[in-house]
Structure formats: structure tokens, C-alpha cells
């Protein structure tokens, strides 16, 4: 399990002030790259934690649905423009971002993923696809600045990032639908 150390090193690296500042200087990288990486770190740390505290996960997340809800809640919270502003202005919200994304989003997602039926998994992807389309629409066509810390052009870029990600998820869904179909004939 040497892999764990690399993940921890990456976690610390991403929190170093110059690295965090660079990533937060561009809105889309802040939301789509930094935040995704933090959630991914939780996802990678999860197996170790699940092994350490099996009872805890068994008790609180027996069928995967509570974990899924927690994940959705935390991620939706961080897609709001105001929460990004706060993370940039208040150090304790920044800290909350660093902790909540790995441990309240990445870890529960990993624990839930193997417990969930595929209908829930696809439901989750469909939910995020729709959410991303709505967010993309909001950021691209909103006439005013939604975030104090970023320019309008940053916001439009982020909007297109959301739409493109949604397109990628649609392609993924179509791909898994077609391959499943091909498996079953």
C-alpha cells in the first residue's frame, strides 16, 4: 500500500499556498480541476479508511444511499458561485473546502459505489449531466457577474466547461448503453 503515500503527498502539494493560488486564479480550473482532484484524493484514500473503520461505514452507509446523498449535497454546494467566493475570501471556508471534498464527497462516493445498483449509478450520472447543463446555461447566459472574484469571461469559460463535461457524460452513457445492449444480444 505504498500508493497511499503518493496520494497524501499529492493532497499536501495541492494545498500548498502557491499551488492553490495558481489553480484558484482561473475560475474553471478552480472548480473543475482543483475541486475534482480533491474529491479524487478522497476516492483514492477511501479503501484504507474503509479497512480501518469497517463498522462505521457499515453502520452509516449500509446500502450506499446515505453516502450518495452526502456526495451529491457536498458537490452541489461547491458548484454554487457564492461558495467559491467564500472559499477565496475566508480562510476557514477554504479549509472546509480542502476537507469536505475529499472526506465528505470522495470517500463516501467510493464506499457507496460498490454497494449501489447500476440503476442508481446511472441515475447519478444522469443527475449530474442535467445539473451541468443547467449550470452551463446559468454561467454562459447570466448577464451579470455571479462571483465577485472572477471576471465575466471566466464565468463564460466555466459555463462552456460545464456543457462540454455534460456532453462527455452523455457520450459515456450512450457508450455503456450500447455495449450493454451488445452484451445482451
Amino acid at each position: 500500500m505504498k500508493g497511499i503515500y503518493y496520494v497524501v503527498i499529492l493532497y499536501i502539494f495541492l494545498m500548498l499556498p502557491p499551488v492553490a493560488n495558481l489553480m484558484e486564479s482561473v475560475m474553471i480550473i478552480h472548480m473543475h480541476m482543483q475541486m475534482t482532484l480533491f474529491a479524487a484524493i478522497g476516492f483514492l484514500l477511501a479503501p484504507g479508511m474503509i479497512r480501518k473503520f469497517p463498522r462505521f461505514f457499515e453502520e452509516w452507509n449500509p446500502n450506499g444511499i446515505p453516502g450518495l446523498l452526502l456526495f451529491v449535497l457536498v458537490i452541489v454546494y461547491w458548484t454554487l458561485p457564492r461558495s467559491m467566493d467564500e472559499a477565496l475570501n475566508l480562510w476557514y471556508i477554504e479549509l472546509f473546502k480542502f476537507i469536505s471534498l475529499p472526506f465528505l464527497a470522495g470517500v463516501p462516493l467510493r464506499d457507496s459505489w460498490k454497494k449501489l445498483k447500476s440503476s442508481w449509478k446511472n441515475g447519478l450520472i444522469i443527475f449530474f449531466t442535467l445539473l451541468f447543463i443547467v449550470m452551463g446555461w446559468l454561467y454562459i447566459w447570466s448577464p451579470n457577474q455571479l462571483c465577485n472574484n472572477y471576471l465575466l469571461i471566466d464565468q463564460i469559460t466555466l459555463g462552456w466547461g460545464f456543457l462540454l463535461t455534460a456532453v462527455c457524460m452523455i457520450i459515456y452513457l450512450a457508450y455503456s448503453y450500447i455495449t450493454d445492449l451488445a452484451e445482451n444480444i
Binding site: 480541476m33 463564460i156 462540454l164 463535461t165 457508450y175
Partner: peptide, 26 residues
């Protein structure tokens, strides 16, 4: 392969969206 392609497309979108939106909007 489907997954690799989707990952590739996501990475490409992320990488190109910033400069392209800038070039087009401004």
C-alpha cells in the same frame, strides 16, 4: 476503450475551453 475515450475528451475539453472561449468572446 469507451472509458478511455471519454476521459480523453474530458481532458481535451478542459484544456481547450479556456483559450478558445477567450479567443472567440474577445
Amino acid at each position: 476503450w469507451g472509458l478511455w475515450i471519454v476521459l480523453m475528451l474530458t481532458l481535451v475539453s478542459m484544456a481547450y475551453v479556456i483559450p478558445l472561449v477567450d479567443f472567440i468572446v474577445n
